[in-house]
Design a protein around this nucleic acid. Structure first.
Lengths: 212, 212
DNA sequence: TAGATTGTTAATCGATTAACAATC
DNA sequence: TAGATTGTTAATCGATTAACAATC
């Protein structure tokens, strides 16, 4: 719809704005200036104004930003004002941890089912979400209009499974497998590489400034 | 030790280099040029050479890089050649998922124990890792030389718990709680905000180029 | 109206890419 | 030695910050 290309750095910050605005709403705060918000979030006020102005003028001179209005506008930008149907591939601890996080539903992510190869898990439910055998994947995706699949299986099978999911109509993959997926470029991939995150932590611990 | 400040962008890429070099080693590849690696990883060869040269000349003109040498050097930079003692706070699905990921141990991260407030979990083990009551936290951290704590508890208690951990001597927090932690700046924090990751995915799905 | 604060342009800073001399 | 490829400097690109006119 929009034609201006928004930079990755801006997109990365949007969910954090959303989180802070949600907290402000809960505290009953009605309006906030870029300056106040910048102090809370520890970023520059200039960056906040620049970021938001990528999407339109949400503020008002002399007043600031209306918290709940801005909150809702960011939700629209992020697309979390609409429902997304999601399945989880791999019903191990990580898959179950995701299934158990009820807040995703409040953001419009409906977890329709989980899938696993382990016959002992089939038929079990996690917070009311049923675990199905892989054999039913194709029909399930088509019948439930599934757009997103969370991939929480070992990396050895991840690429193959991702390709299968795409061929069945999945448009986006939330990839927890420790590997990069090579998929057609109209398929969206968001990686969560926990081992890389832990290594970055290790770097920071190991190379901490001992001065000061 | 080193004084030149390495940029965050470089650090972020290091674990990925490490992963690719590990795979090359497994395939028995002995040497690789920045150009070959750049094609595999889909980054520019120039970036690879620039990144690595932040830490020293690991390559050789006319030859390229020795895979296993470079692999080991990156491990040293990341600090994963040394052992790190780790505990997990919160023995729910996410905590257990981390405990179950055996590969962390191969990278030197020894999971010494898990902690939870739920009395029904106390005494249970996950892959040989025992779940202890929170009351034993302080003594356990001191006795086991724990440097890193993975925080997989709800955000309401996260800040308070993080402060406790720091006061007991923990130097780094791997934060899975959906909140920012405000800790002294000599404490390392690495955030894994899954809900933000999912929102970024949502943005990409919602704003995909329909052209082409 | 005067004060406050945005929206937006310009200046600065940092990161990426290109180019090539050094050297194995 | 000639060819290959790094290490490194210079050029480009993009992102952040500063500044201020517009305006509520």
């Amino acid at each position: 719809m929009d034609n201006k290309q928004i930079s990755k750095a801006v997109i990365k910050r949007l969910p954090r704005y959303y989180r802070y605005l949600g907290e402000l709403m809960q505290e009953g705060v009605e309006r906030i200036s870029s300056n106040e918000l910048s102090e809370k979030m520890k970023v520059t006020a200039s960056q906040i104004r620049q970021d938001l102005n990528n999407f339109g003028g949400f503020g008002q001179q002399g007043y600031g930003y209306n918290v709940s209005y801005l909150y809702n506008e960011i939700a629209k930008i992020l697309g979390i004002d609409k429902q997304h149907n999601l399945i989880i591939i791999g019903a191990g601890n990580l898959g179950q941890a995701i299934a158990n996080y009820a807040n995703f539903e409040r953001r419009g992510f409906m977890i329709k089912g989980m899938f696993d190869v382990n016959p002992r898990l089939i038929g079990m439910t996690v917070r009311g979400i049923e675990i199905y055998p892989i054999e039913q994947l194709e029909s399930f995706i088509k019948e439930n209009d599934v757009q997103i699949a969370a991939l929480t299986i070992p990396k050895a099978k991840a690429e193959e499974m991702a390709e299968k999911l795409v061929s069945y109509g999945v448009k986006a993959i939330w990839n927890f497998a420790h590997t990069d997926l090579n998929l057609p470029k109209d398929v969206v991939v968001e990686n969560v590489h926990l081992s890389e995150s832990l290594m970055r932590l290790s770097y920071k611990v190991s190379n901490m400034d001992t001065g000061k």
